[in-house]
Simulated assay, not measured.
Amino acid sequence: MFACKIVSLGIKSSAGQLKCLCTISRCLLSSFDDLTSQQRLKVLGTLNEATAQELEAFDVPKTIIRDIIDERKTNGVYRSLDRILKIDGSGENWLRKMCKSLTDVATKPSRTKNAKNFLTPTLPNIELRDAVAIHLKTPGVSWAKLSYPDNTLTEWNHENFTFLPLKMSPVETFNQTIGILKKIPPADVYVFEQRLSPGPRGSRQPAMVSAYTQQGELLSMLVALLNTSINHNASLRNGKMDSKNNIENRVFFLKSTLAPRLFRTLIGGERVSALEVLKEFLEGDGSKHPQIPCTQIKVNARLKTEFNSKSAVDKELLGQALMLAVAFMEFCVYKNRASIEALASSR
């Protein structure tokens, strides 16, 4: 319909064509205005997960299906709906029909074999603009903040536990946690990795048991403080509590080992240093490792310089938080099919 209008107007100048195309883009994007943030995420997740056969169930023409998959393979997963405008043959009616079809199906429980419970609890229907991944282990705590949908690393820092006493009183643990909380940037959600037990061997070593217990205490306090801090829980600032004054949870746990499996730092069930893969991952403007099937992230020069100036221990801490943040985005937000399929090959 729009193509006919362009021809009939006889637009010859590049400026005129650009103005007309911008008008068309605004008209097409208006079809998405009634979608909620969660619906957009579900539509994008379907576009990033679906095979050609699954897209046919949405009455998508085969020529468009091929273009959708080719675009996904060439330029990575879809992070915004307006990117569909780049696909030839996408018109106003087509886009509206596609979004309605995908939204209708996306609101139902997924039946695909890739629909796995990567996150506990399930991500609620919230306006997601950013997420902070927090890595907590014996050497220290680190965090990485990724914005959505531009996938930019905006904050990346850590605190070392070198001088932390082996045993702390409840008040000392509380004060330590408050100090960490003040440094963690606010976000819409906070993601930790699910904890693993120290195992039979570790349970026989008092030092490991003590460290594991201490981490558990710090983690429990961080979960409570992140959820109850007005600065960190946006729902409190917006007054979003139910009739029983229950606070909306904003802390989630990603299934253990997902991040190291995605970044190929889990060898024979044991984690190995991530420094080499991180160095390659952060090199160049694209910040995308050719062997790691994940969405491009943007990292500014300052954060890269600060990372490179750290000790090996601190780099490892920072790297674990970044990998956790990327894994959360890939598996729970973008639902990147390539990332999900990579899990099977990493076993």
Rank of each mutant, 00 (worst) to 15 (best):
R40C: 10
L219V: 03
R26M: 12
T257V: 05
T257S: 06
T257P: 01
I64Q: 13
E316F: 10
E330G: 06
W94I: 05
Q39G: 13
A106C: 07
N160S: 14
L282F: 15
A338Y: 12
G268V: 06
R79L: 04
S142E: 07
L236S: 00
L236I: 00
S287Y: 07
N238R: 12
E56G: 05
A342L: 08
T177V: 12
G216I: 05
I69N: 04
M1P: 05
Q296C: 08
V7Q: 13
L128K: 00
C22L: 15
N160W: 03
G268C: 02
G199I: 06
E276K: 12
F192I: 02
Q205C: 11
I24D: 05
T103E: 07
R129P: 01
V223Q: 07
L254W: 02
T162K: 11
Q215K: 09
I230W: 02
L136A: 01
K12C: 14
F307K: 03
D314F: 03
T107Y: 05
T152Q: 10
N48I: 03
N157M: 04
A133S: 14
R129G: 10
I11Q: 02
P186T: 00
L282G: 03
D67H: 12
P198K: 11
V313E: 12
Y78F: 15
G179Q: 09
D34F: 11
K19H: 14
V277M: 11
R129F: 06
V299S: 02
W94N: 07
D104S: 14
I68A: 08
D104E: 06
A325I: 01
E341S: 11
Q205F: 09
T173G: 06
K5H: 14
G286K: 06
N151I: 10
F118L: 13
M323T: 05
D67T: 11
G16K: 09
S203I: 04
I64E: 06
M329H: 08
L95G: 02
A344S: 13
S101W: 01
